[in-house]
Amino acid sequence: MSFSGESKGFINYVYERYSNLRVKDISVVFEGQITHQVMKALTGLVEEQLDDVEDDRVMRRVFHVMVESLQNINRHAESYEYRGHPYPGVGLVLVAKNKERFQVTTGNIIETGHAEEISLFLGKLNNMDSDSLDDLYKQQMREGIMSPKGGAGLGFIDIRRKTGNPLDFSFVKIDEETTFFIFTSTIAR
């Protein structure tokens, strides 16, 4: 299943981030339904590529950021209807690196109504220092209400605190109901 027509647009948005951020080698690029099995296959693939050539700590962080980003899509990507065809939980992922860093970019459809909430939350995380991020993580672990599939925002908080880098995000409004959400994490090498 693919987004004919629209898909070109979506992947271009993701590539745009990639070229803006001047990262060079692509490790993985994938578009499709992000199931649990797909998440495991993609993280396994990157793990295999990095094993023995990359510092263990960097490899573990790239793996973790991929797991969290892809599980977010798996849990939260909205189904999307285009010209009467439903596209369930589809997402994009691009993992790329240059000399200094790895970048993990994901893109998925969300409800337009959720964009502001996500934007405020990620903006808040970007403005927090490391101690406050640790405190927030612990607080969310204790009190956070998890959806039946997990979550509670822990993934975003943990990516932010483990990578130490600001989260990069943007939204492309498709229509009143649907928005494409692009999210990039940076891991120093």
């Binding site: 973790h64 672990m141 998890m146 979550g151 822990l154 993934g155 908080i157 943990d158």
Partner: peptide
């Protein structure tokens, strides 16, 4: 390894 969803259950 454990993911963030597991971290809550470990707690």
């Amino acid at each position: 390894y454990f993911n963030t969803a597991s971290s809550k259950l470990i707690l």
